[in-house]
Amino acid sequence: MYTASDLRKGLKVEIDGVPYLITEFNFVKPGKGQAVYNCKLKNLISGGTISRAYRSNDKIDEPRLEERKLRYSYPEGDHYVFMDENYEQVNISAEALGDNRHFLAEDMEVEVLFHNGRPIEITLPYFVEKRVIHTEPGVRGDTATNVLKPATVEGGYEISVPLFVNQGDVVRIDTRTGEYVDRVAKK
């Protein structure tokens, strides 16, 4: 249990069984009244945002969160199989992984935040390298980086790359944004 005075930006709390992240926090104290803590909270499952005001003595549930380091093994049906440090198998659904599933590579270490056993936040290494398996050739001599074209990388994920990137090149992708960063190897 938290009381309102424990609240701060970045804290994770639980409301009606749902985990939330405090994204904005404002202490107000009108006149000689009790303090009121105005919060904006992000629903960690749906992504939606709500506003709540708490008084000093209000109690707020503390979510049961567990952070585990897992190592990716292989896809299986509609889920992905990971191993924990004791080589216990942990399955995570494609839905929970979202776009992250495109960036997995065998033996990749990921950090997974579980809420009551349910994965709610999956953190990959910030950068992954992927080979471009399909893109149209760029116009010869065009080395501009601000003009982009679509490309498909191994695993089937589509990104936008500069015109000079060719099929067979290896590019670096930022897993937080899902966007191209740079080219690390030419074919």
Partner: peptide, 14 residues
């Protein structure tokens, strides 16, 4: 109602 007064003052009236 003290609790309601303080909360409404902070979130509605002010």
């Amino acid at each position: 109602d003290a609790d309601r007064f303080d909360l409404d003052m902070a979130t509605r009236v002010e």
